[in-house]
């Protein structure tokens, strides 16, 4: 079978120096309780608007990641990242206080993995320290993509809940101790399987996740058994099941290693139906959970597949279906 024109990038010196997470109260009440560096008591974070709260979360995550890695502002070469708000204001505004280069990125909920790929590539190009960041906020995303918060509407059983959180990761070309490394990445293509239902993002994104994963397996001569874990972004429970089916059609059984960051964030009784969604999912789970597992040697080799649904409210109102994208990075202990 023929794959699309894409190669898997390899990185020699993309060390993951450290990560920092800021999570909302509902997220901290979920399955990763207590693992976040900063858990908010209130998702307003002492601000007047939710947008400003999201911005403050970005600032805290970025400052926190630098402090955790003992890096000063002047040692940082580049910030790359994004969020879900129009014109990615949360990331851009919070990058104001840094005097280094800034690349604003948008691939919806795949933004965090995209930022890791861009950051790792920049290290290949001679930069020393790059900060990769992404996040989302339930209350800002909800009103941009759906309805006002307090509007009483029936939720479909296929819906997901936008996670509130920001994750920041420092990638460095030189390190003094052994740390996990981003070793390769496969950049995905935009795929549209004609799903129109805005609630059913998992179904819209699953074919894209399958496509990029298969591409990565083919380019690196691997299969799911070579990895300790494969984490997709925010497919949710339904999307994850669909992905397992699609992979199985191509002869890959990933049921033992496949996890979904979004589906793993909340407990059943938190009533988020298919689980979490949003750019925060991968950023939170990678920085609060996966980095730890890699550090203690529980995982040696993992894949992180950021999944993004690339529609906007305008495109959806105009009747267009939902295009999706997935990028994959391989991280080794």
């Amino acid at each position: 079978m023929k794959f699309y024109k894409s190669t898997t990038l390899t990185f020699k010196n993309a060390h993951v120096l450290g990560g920092y997470t800021v999570a909302g109260p509902k997220e901290n009440a979920g399955k990763y309780h207590g693992k976040f560096d900063l858990a908010l008591q209130n998702d307003m974070f002492g601000q007047k608007t939710f947008e400003r709260a999201e911005r403050k979360m970005f600032e805290h995550a970025m400052d926190g990641a630098l402090a955790k890695c003992n890096l000063g502002h002047d040692e940082l070469d580049l910030i790359c990242g994004g969020d879900l708000l129009n014109q990615i204001i949360s990331t851009s505004f919070s990058a104001k206080k840094y005097h280094c280069g800034f690349l604003g990125l948008y691939n919806a909920c795949a933004t965090f993995v995209e930022s890791l790929i861009v950051g790792a590539s920049m290290l290949n190009n001679g930069l020393n320290n790059v900060l990769c960041v992404a996040g989302s906020h339930f209350s800002t995303a909800e009103r941009q993509y759906r309805y006002p918060l307090e509007l009483g509407v029936l939720r479909s059983p296929v819906t997901q809940w936008t996670a509130t959180g920001v994750g920041a990761t420092v990638l460095a070309s030189q390190v003094h101790k052994p740390v996990p490394k981003v070793v390769s990445a496969t950049i995905g293509r935009v795929l549209d399987y004609g799903i129109l239902d805005l609630n059913n993002m998992g179904a819209a994104m699953a074919p894209s996740a399958c496509d990029t994963l298969l591409q990565h397996f083919s380019n690196t001569n691997t299969n799911p058994t070579h990895y300790d874990a494969i984490y997709t972004g925010d497919l949710g429970k339904l999307g994850k099941d669909i992905l397992l089916d699609l992979l199985l059609q191509d002869g890959f059984d990933a049921s033992k290693v496949l996890h979904d960051c979004g589906a793993s964030l909340f407990f059943e009784e938190q009533q988020t139906y298919q689980g979490a969604s949003g750019a925060a999912c991968t950023a939170l789970v990678f920085n609060c959970h996966l980095l730890h597992k890699l550090a203690v040697g529980k995982y040696k080799r993992i894949l992180l597949a950021g999944t993004g649904a690339l529609m906007s409210p305008t495109s959806s109102f105009q009747g267009d279906s939902i295009p999706a994208i997935t990028h994959v990075v391989e991280v080794q202990a």
């Binding site: 059983p157 399987y193 074919p207 669909i242």
Partner: peptide, 21 residues
């Protein structure tokens, strides 16, 4: 990826997704 047509995919998703009661 083995090409599943858009129409087949849509009907597959519809049959797979949880229905509201």
């Amino acid at each position: 990826m083995k090409r599943i047509s858009k129409d087949n995919y849509k009907s597959y998703v519809f049959q797979k997704m949880p229905k509201s009661s």
